[in-house]
Simulated scan of single mutants.
Amino acid sequence: MRLRTFLAAGFLALGAGFLALGAPSAFAGASSSQLEAYQPDPALRTAPTSELEARVRRSCAVIQARMQNAAETSFERPCGCYAKTTLRALDASEIEAYRTTGYFNDSARAKALGAIDSCKLQRPI
């Protein structure tokens, strides 16, 4: 159950970044009521930044591996780049929004998409 919550939070974080530019993502088929019904992991509220980065990195690896039909381990370095670049770019209010909702807000999404590109990751089709 904890892994499912962890992955859901990560998918939302990464998927929210993908949604910023209107690109399809893991949530392309999700209705707004499904996203509204999502309850973020309460541990996000007090997790250190290093844990947030680990969650984003893990979600990135899972999504990239599925999209590219490859092993998750092959995305350790680029997803580490993505997570680190994204979280360093976020201001305090964007990090607080992520902690509260479990996904990136609009301004954070734009920064996350920039990180996807700069870390040479594939955007969802």
Rank of each mutant, 00 (worst) to 15 (best):
M67N: 10
R58S: 15
T85M: 07
G80I: 09
C79R: 03
F104R: 04
R58P: 01
P48G: 14
Q64P: 02
R55D: 05
R57M: 11
N105V: 04
S59Q: 01
S74I: 05
R45M: 06
D91W: 09
R99T: 04
E51S: 05
E96M: 06
E72A: 11
A97G: 08
E72K: 09
Y98S: 03
S74T: 08
P48Q: 10
L52Q: 03
A47K: 07
S74D: 14
G102V: 01
E72R: 14
T85Y: 09
T49S: 11
F75V: 03
E94Y: 06
Y98Q: 10
R77S: 14
N69P: 02
N105S: 09
V62Y: 11
Q64M: 09
A83N: 01
A61H: 08
R66A: 15
P48L: 04
I95P: 02
C79Y: 03
T101V: 10
Q64L: 09
C81L: 02
A89R: 02
A54M: 02
A61Q: 15
S74G: 08
T86V: 02
C81R: 09
E51N: 05
A71E: 14
A65E: 05
K84V: 13
R57K: 15
F104A: 06
F104N: 05
V56T: 08
M67V: 13
Q68P: 08
A61Y: 00
T86K: 00
L87S: 01
T100H: 14
G102C: 05
A70I: 06
M67W: 15
T86H: 00
P48V: 10
N105I: 05
Y82R: 03
S93G: 08
R77D: 13
T86E: 01
K84R: 15
T86Y: 02
Y98C: 00
G80K: 07
S50Q: 15
L52C: 02
G80T: 05
S59A: 14
C79T: 00
D91Q: 10
A47S: 11
M67S: 11
L87Y: 03
V56K: 07
A61L: 11
L44W: 04
A54I: 02
K84W: 12
S93I: 07
G102N: 04
N105W: 04
E96Y: 04
L90A: 04
K84I: 07
Y103R: 06
T85D: 14
E76V: 15
S50C: 06
D91T: 01
N69E: 14
D91I: 05
R66S: 15
T49L: 12
A47R: 04
Q68S: 13
Y98W: 15
C79E: 01
A83H: 01
T46V: 08
K84N: 12
E72G: 04
Q64T: 06
R66E: 15
T73C: 03
I63E: 07
R77T: 14
R88D: 12
T85A: 14
S93C: 01
C60G: 08
R45Y: 10
Q64R: 06
I63S: 06
R77Y: 12
A54E: 07
R45F: 07
A83Q: 07
S59I: 00
F75Q: 00
G80E: 07
L44C: 06
Y82S: 00
K84T: 14
E94A: 07
E72N: 04
R45S: 09
Y103C: 00
K84H: 12
F75Y: 12
F104I: 07
R77Q: 14
A71K: 11
P78H: 09
N105K: 02
T86S: 08
A97R: 10
